[in-house]
Design a protein around this nucleic acid. Structure first.
Length: 647
RNA sequence: GCCAGCAUAGCUCAGUUGGCCAGAGCAGCUGAUUUGUAAUCAGCCGGUCGGGGGUUCGAAUCCCUCUGCUGGCUCCA
């Protein structure tokens, strides 16, 4: 007999060789029907795989990420089976589960595969799923595995097996399909009730562009048809919120082939929005003791040789600009920090001045590969809401706190309520990869971890993810559709202070090396605005809306009064316009609704007589009649509610 | 950068197997209308069909090439 311990610490006795599924059945039939896989002593296992020793087990269902993983990984096998039946002789690469579904890389040989084939494969998959094929695990020796795939002519699997250790190789067979796989899998394919193959694309074998390109088919499956429908609806909604589409519709930004790819042009409304964001952050930063600095868009090659960026990126970036007479070389600045280091170096510093915080909305240019460019999220010219904090190692913790406060204020003002944090530390087994003293690293890493704990941040710690120059903390938000976006970042840097020979005079009258902290709460204005557009679907919070209201006069008889209202509101810093077209009110309302303008002020005879406005709220409808002052007060209250912060 | 797909008016899109001056709706302009909570009517303007080259009696349509966009891959100081 062996002991099985469940997550609630209850202990049950079973015969050796019991499976997680049998344990589930013993608890309740209903539970057993939902078990996709299990965790045995922290390791993911097939629900049907025998357990031979005392173990802690956790049953995994569709509600667990690992349960979904097992389901999608199994779906990849199911798809491979369908493909093999439909296109005999194809060869398979790898087919893992991913965050939203799964994919399989396939070498289709001479078959021509396009989007149209996906339906056919889906249909076959559903057919096979109904057969409730089990996934049977088999241990196999390396030699036998090589023989099996050798006979099949599957060179990709052979390459994979070659890198594996004999004794650790397993195959899984489901229906007609046998795959090299470490598992785990769901009990049978019957759990897969709804299937959607979402896209098809090329992918290099093992991500290496010198190797053959395989066809990657992405898909997702669900245990219920309804969940697939919801997922497809979410995709539709995401399409509607695409910032490239809304950017065009709401006239926020554009691109021009003539200006150059990846170089965004901000239109008046987009610029208004961006300026509001910048003004807000500037105000917050001023309160937090930041000093504005300004640096030019190019820098001498020597600057980047000192910073080290030239050695690392000089060859694969924009070519230098050369002066005609002297032949001096300048680079478009890819970062602001080298300039800021020289600002620091412009005079000697005392420990009493630290921390020094230099802030700049600095526009930088990076040569991104053309295939990488995407709307505003990946561009070649963008503006970082950058700042560099020069401080002592002891001050790192407080400075992190200060930056986190700023990030909190900003995320709150923009209703990003779901924030995830990643702490990236150095790889403890590979310390020589990093610059800076052991002591300093330990101090900084400890400070970051402590701050995260004290602030109760929803943080995960990744070892080996730090930059070579220091540990960092990255902020991710989940948008209204649950999609994750990486935004702000805080990074400790021991490298640049060294390279630029930054110093301060300590209380001991000796020279010391400051630590530098890079931080950008938004990340870049371009990327942030893109994420914001998609988060709110173009319905910007009132304080950011390029036009907060639009006046809709019933007829041109009320033009004078409309202008008076406009002036009164403008004086209170409320932004708006008048729609003085000779259109019917219904039409003006429709257009204003489509432009997602927060408030529509309808003005006719009644309003003019009583010095009021009739207010309609975007997406909600008629709010009734307000005096101009009352309306202004309402607007200002709404703005204050989000943008107020404690300094 | 690589693979695949796409590119017709400011926007969204039609344009049969190559064949008469390349079309529609919206936007814009002009006029009429003076309008009360999601589209008033009429007229007009607007395109060397992404650029270049080729095949053909004839190309938006077929071929080559360049540019850009989209989806992936690789990359991201």
């Amino acid at each position: 007999m062996i002991n099985i311990i469940l997550p609630d610490k209850t202990r049950r006795e079973y015969a050796e060789g019991v499976t997680a599924l049998e344990v589930a059945k013993d608890i309740s039939e209903g539970l057993a029907r939902n078990v996709l896989a299990a965790k045995v002593n922290g390791q993911v296992w097939d629900a049907t795989r025998p357990i031979h020793a005392d173990s802690d087990i956790q049953l995994l269902t569709w509600n667990d990420d690992d349960g979904k993983g097992a389901m999608w990984h199994s779906s990849a096998h199911l798809m491979a089976e369908a493909i093999e039946l439909l296109y005999p002789g194809v060869k398979f690469g790898i087919g893992p589960d991913i965050e939203n579904g799964f994919y399989y890389d396939v070498d289709f040989g001479d078959y021509e595969i396009s989007e149209k084939d996906l339906q056919k494969i889906e249909k076959k998959m559903l057919e096979l799923a109904r057969e409730k094929q089990t996934f049977d695990r088999k241990d196999i020796s390396k030699a036998d595995a090589l023989k099996y795939f050798g006979d099949k002519g599957d060179e990709y699997k052979i390459e994979l097996i070659t890198d594996l250790t004999d004794g650790e190789i397993t195959l899984y067979q489901s229906g007609h399909f046998t795959d090299l796989c470490r598992g785990p899998h769901i009990p049978n394919t019957g759990f897969i009730k709804a299937i959607k193959l979402t896209s098809i694309a090329g992918a290099y074998w093992r991500g290496d562009e010198s190797r053959k390109q395989l066809t990657r088919i992405y898909g997702i499956t669900f245990p219920k048809k309804k969940e697939l429908d919801e997922y497809l609806e979410m995709l539709e909604e995401a399409k509607k919120r695409d910032h490239r589409l809304l950017g065009k519709e709401l006239e926020l930004f554009t691109f021009s082939q003539k200006v150059g790819q990846g170089l965004p042009l901000w239109l008046p409304k987009g610029a208004e929005l961006r300026e509001k964001l910048e003004q807000f952050l500037k105000k917050v930063q001023k309160e937090a003791g930041y000093k504005p600095v300004i640096s030019p868009h190019i820098g001498n090659v020597e600057l980047y040789k000192t910073s080290g960026h030239y050695q690392k990126y000089g060859e694969e970036s924009f070519r230098p600009i050369t002066t005609p007479a002297e032949g001096e070389e300048f680079f478009l600045k890819p970062m602001n920090c080298p300039h800021h280091c020289e600002i620091y170096n412009s005079k000697p510093h005392s420990y009493k001045e630290l921390p020094l915080r230099f802030a700049e909305f600095g526009t930088v240019y990076r040569y991104e590969q053309s295939g990488e460019l995407h709307g505003l999220t990946r561009v070649r010219g963008f503006t970082q809401d950058d700042a560099h904090i020069f401080c002592t190692p002891e001050q790192i913790k407080d400075e992190f706190k200060g930056v986190i406060d700023i990030i909190d204020i900003i995320f709150k003002a923009l209703s990003f309520n779901d924030v995830l944090v990643q702490i990236s530390l150095r790889d403890p087994d590979n310390k020589e990869k990093y610059i800076g003293s052991d002591e300093n690293w330990e101090k900084a890493e400890r400070a970051i971890i402590e701050v995260a704990e004290e602030r109760g941040l929803n943080a995960v710690t990744e070892y080996g993810e730090a930059a070579f120059y220091g540990p960092k903390m990255d902020f991710m938000v989940k948008d209204a559709l649950g999609r994750k976006w990486q935004l702000g970042t805080i990074q400790v840097d021991y490298n640049l202070p060294e390279r630029f020979d930054l110093t301060y005079i300590g209380s001991d009258n000796e020279k010391h090396r400051p630590v530098m902290i890079h931080r950008a709460p938004f990340g870049s204005m371009e990327r942030f605005v893109a994420v914001l557009i998609e988060h709110c679907g173009g319905n910007f919070p009132l304080w950011l809306a390029p036009e907060q209201f639009i006046i809709l006069p019933i007829s041109d008889k009320y033009q004078t009064y409309s202008e008076k209202v406009l002036n009164l509101l403008n004086k209170q810093n409320i932004r708006g316009v008048i729609d003085d077209r000779s259109e019917k009110t219904g039409r003006k309302i429709r257009d204003a609704e489509m432009q997602k303008i927060p408030y529509m002020l309808i003005i006719g005879e009644k309003e003019e007589n009583e010095n009021s406005v009739s207010v309609r709220k975007h997406g909600e409808g008629d709010l009734g009649t307000f005096s101009i002052d009352k309306f202004a007060e309402m607007i200002n209250n709404e703005v204050d509610a989000l943008t107020a912060f404690d300094s």
